[in-house]
Structures are given as structure tokens and as C-alpha cells.
Design a protein around this nucleic acid. Structure first.
Lengths: 277, 277
DNA sequence: ATATTTTTGTAGTAATATTACAGTATCAGC
DNA sequence: GCTGATACTGTAATATTACTACAAAAATAT
């Protein structure tokens, strides 16, 4: 909703823009305000407020406030709450899931779409792709392998640091290296990236903004997740990384057209006999 | 909000309860309705509606509708939308993330908390735990291994079907087997479970309700994720499984007290020298 | 500089929500 | 089973709120 206001700001008249600014500045106040209130705050007349509502695609002030309330609510609903030993399993699961959702929303807001597009482009152009990750990120690398080789392009994941380095040194400019690391500071991975870059292979990283790994890569897909709640287990960063790679994979699949869909269908059919019934 | 209404239903008068029922039955209609409208729907007078609002802790009808809009919005905001080749990467990522969030919310609502408690109990009592999963679920099993052995209890993941069967036949009643499968129909995994049960080891499964695997297990942690959007890559089921196991792990960690926290700290410190800076 | 279009505000109208009050039902005590 | 008290509910009036029609003002083009 707020995005909508921002994007349609260009088509608004001067007074209407005054209203828009008021709304954007303190939306949570506006939700509770009457049309009079808002008109006074923006120093315009009440009908102008109504016109503003219509201009951004609402039925009237009522409808506008309702939609605003909705969109604001859902922004704030999910956040990290500390877990306690006294929590029931219901409280515990609610807290953890809400926290995970919050981190997903965060990814949704901060993901660099240009980088995604650029990464898709690199993938489409390369002949083969290799994924590097250690520890927890190694799992993400393997998950990515599963996703990407179903698309019909040679894809492999290396989780062992030594093997990573050996593999990286054997890349070439027709390959693509995708490097996954939560902190972006893992020595082994950084060394592997250095070797990869020397071969002329482009490197796409999935790590936090500004980390050593991000700086060493051609493209970085930002995954900045709050560390707060990951004390017990680093779930959120893992979910976020997998999410980003999934977006990449689906983006590529969509761009690949029917041919790639065929590959998917065949890959799925290949394991059909593994199931009962 | 709806919970609040439900819980305070006991203190309401008969007419007020009529209003409450109307609200609970179709909340999304009510959000758009005027006080007249709602009064007519509940077959009461308008002041009764106002009284109802006050009774559940709102300032008036206005305030009530605002709060209702808020709470409903955040429930329905996320849902699956089909991706299209024409989607920009922004649209694509928004759709995929929303869909993933929706599946998390689904887990939040349908998770069987009694089963979680029972699984925690089993874990605390066992001497060692083994995780079984193949293909994509194999990754989840390995992720679980990482989570659980940090808690100081022997934990191991088997992803190879043959190894799974061999390992399962060597379990005993002091072990715990955790079996992960999206469909719950994988033959190899089912056979492994059969072997495990014969040894007297309890089996906790993470799969869909009512699947063959769920029926064979002592406890099942339901993970029913809509299949709709997982055509390109089975992300949502994976996230859901990992989420559930994370809830389990954190639940156990919290119940383990300071001793277990110590284990966590030590496990984290052990890899500290792997990072630059 | 004038005409035209767009924008903005004023005043009035319709609706919506709220309040005061009175009638009705419910229940306890006799 | 009746009476009185209490709680509940609806009617009617009021105040507030949102909206519309119209006219004035500003901005733009000719």
C-alpha cells in the first residue's frame, strides 16, 4: 500500500502530494485519524483527501484507511521474540516461525533485483555451474545442486574445503561458480573464490552485504539476516539462502521456456518408481 | 483479535454473542461492513454492536473494525500466486517469498503441539538419535544432524537408502529414529522404518498426515504443505521440514538447561578460527 | 493577455457512529 | 407465582464523519 502511494506520487497534484507525504511519514497515526484530522495535518481540504484516496485506487477514505491498516499490520506482525524455557511448545513454535517469517520478509525487502537478473543472465550463458559451501552452507549448496541440475545444465556442489579449492582451480570462463556463506568470512571458501577468479570464471556469491566474500565476487545476492534469534540453530540464514537460490532457479526455469520444463518433468518422472501406491 | 473475541465470548450477553458469531463466521465481510450492516446481519440493534465492541476491549465500532482489519490482513496477506515467464525478478521473488511465508503460516496453524512435546520427551530419554532421509529430505536430515549434535547428544544422518536399512537394523530401544520424507511414501525409507521398529527403537516421522510413513511411526510431526507452487523446485516442503526440526531442537535445548547451552557455546567456538578478521 | 484546463476549497448533504433514554426480559427473594 | 430489582435491548435523537456539487482560484497553453 505504501509502495503504491510512493509509486503513484508522480501522477498526483500538489495538494494530493501533501496528503501522500503525511501518510508516508507516519502511517500508523493516519490509520487512526479521521478525514478531518488528515486534512488538517496535510493543510488541505477534506475533499482533497478524498480525491487523493481515489487517485491511488481506493473507493474513498474509508476504503483507503482499511487497506492502509491491513498493509501496515502485516508489516509489523512478525518479529523476533526471545524464547524462554517456560514457553509451551505452542508458544515456542509460534515464536520461531514468526521469526523465520520476519527474516523472509526482510529478504523480500532487501533483495537486490538487479543482481538477481544479472545472476540469471550469467547462469544462462555458462556451460556448467558449481556450488561451494561449507558446514551449514554446504547443505544449501547441495540443495542448489538438486534444484539446478534438474534444469538440464551440469551442476555440482562441493562441500569439502580441499575439494572446493581443487575444483575452483579447474574452472574456466565458460563455468559459473556460486559461493554460499553466511558470514562471508570463511577462509577456505575465500581461497577457493580467489582461485576461481584466476581462471576467469564469474563468481556469484550468496552472503551478507559488504562481507569479504561479497567484495571478491562479480555479483552478490545479499542475504542479511538478523543474528539475534539464531543462537540455538542457524535456521534463518539457511532458509534465506535457500530462498534466494530458489528464486534464482525458478527465474532461470521460467526464462528457459518449454525446453527446460521438459527437463523438469523428466527429472521428476525418473524417481517415480521409488514410491509406494 | 478473533482469538480475543472467542475467549471473551463467555462474558458477553446473548445479543452480543450473536454479533460475535457473525464476526467469527465471516470476518472479512465484517471488515467492510458498516455498523448498520453488521447489526442487521446479527439481527440486533446498532447500539448492541457498539456495546459488543466495548465488551471486547475496543473504543467503539471504528476502533474495532480497525483492529479486526489489522489482524485479518496479516493472516491472508500471503498466498500462492502462479509465477509467469513475464514476471520481473521483483514480482517473481515477491511471489515465491509470499508463497513460502504462506506455507510457514500453514505449519504454524496445523502443527501438532502434543506430538512436538512427545517428540521432545523421546529425544530427552534416548541415548542417541539417527536421522533418515533421501533425496531432498536427505538434506533436511543432515541439517538436523548439525542442529542436534550441537546439543551434545550423539546424532547422525543417513541419506543412502542401503546404509539407512543397515543402520536401522542396528538400533535398539535406547535409540531414537527420526525419519524425514515429504510424500511419506518412499519405499526405501519405509523399509528402514520397518527394521527400526523391530529393534524396539521409537520412530518420529516428519511427513504428511496420514501417509504410510506417518502411520508406521510412533509419533508424526505433520508437515502438510500445498504442492501447488513446488513444481519448479520443492522449496516449501523443505523449509517446512527444517522449520519443524528447528522447533524440536530449540525446544530440546531450552529443556536441557545451562548444561546444553554450554555444549552449544563450545560447538560454536570450535570453528571460530575458520574465519578471517 | 486571454481562454481553457486543472486544481482546490466552501458549503451542503447523506451516511455513519454514538448517546440518552425507555421499554422489555430475566432472575432473585418472598 | 408474584413483586421488585437488575441487566439487557431497542428506539430515537444527536453528533460526527465522509462524500458531492458547485464555484473560485491557480496553472497552463494559445
Amino acid at each position: 500500500m505504501l509502495d503504491k502511494i510512493k509509486s503513484s506520487e508522480g501522477t498526483l497534484s500538489r495538494s494530493e502530494r501533501k496528503v501522500a507525504n503525511q501518510v508516508l511519514e507516519n502511517p500508523d497515526q493516519i490509520v487512526e485519524a479521521s478525514i478531518q484530522h488528515l486534512a488538517r495535518m496535510a493543510q488541505v481540504s477534506e475533499p482533497t483527501v478524498v480525491r487523493f484516496c481515489r487517485a491511488i485506487g481506493c473507493d474513498g477514505y474509508h476504503d483507503f484507511k482499511l487497506r492502509l491498516a491491513r498493509s501496515i499490520a502485516s508489516q509489523d506482525k512478525f518479529f523476533f521474540r526471545d524464547v524462554a524455557a517456560s514457553d509451551s511448545s505452542r508458544e515456542l513454535s509460534d515464536k520461531l516461525i514468526d521469526s523465520a517469517i520476519a527474516s523472509m520478509q526482510h529478504i523480500r525487502n532487501q533483495l537486490d533485483h538487479q543482481a538477481v537478473d544479472a545472476a540469471i543472465e550469467l547462469f544462462c550463458q555458462c556451460e556448467r555451474v558449481e556450488f561451494y559451501g561449507s558446514g551449514g552452507s554446504g547443505l544449501v549448496a547441495e540443495d542448489a545442486q538438486l534444484k539446478f541440475f534438474r534444469l538440464g545444465k551440469p551442476a555440482i556442489a562441493y562441500v569439502d574445503p580441499h575439494v572446493q579449492k581443487a575444483a575452483a582451480s579447474l574452472l574456466d570462463s565458460a563455468s559459473l561458480a556460486v559461493v554460499i556463506s553466511y558470514t562471508g568470512k570463511n577462509k577456505d571458501v575465500l581461497e577457493a573464490v580467489g582461485l576461481a577468479r584466476q581462471t576467469g570464471a564469474p563468481v556469484v556469491s550468496v552472503t551478507r552485504t559488504g562481507s569479504p566474500l561479497a567484495l571478491l565476487s562479480n555479483i552478490n545476492l545479499n542475504v542479511d539476516v538478523a543474528e539475534d534469534s539464531d543462537m540455538f540453530s542457524p535456521l534463518k540464514s539457511r532458509l534465506a539462502q535457500m530462498m534466494v537460490l530458489d528464486i534464482l532457479a525458478v527465474g532461470i526455469a521460467l526464462r528457459g521456456g518449454d525446453e527446460m520444463i521438459d527437463q523438469l518433468v523428466r527429472a521428476t518422472a525418473a524417481i517415480a518408481d521409488k514410491f509406494v501406491e
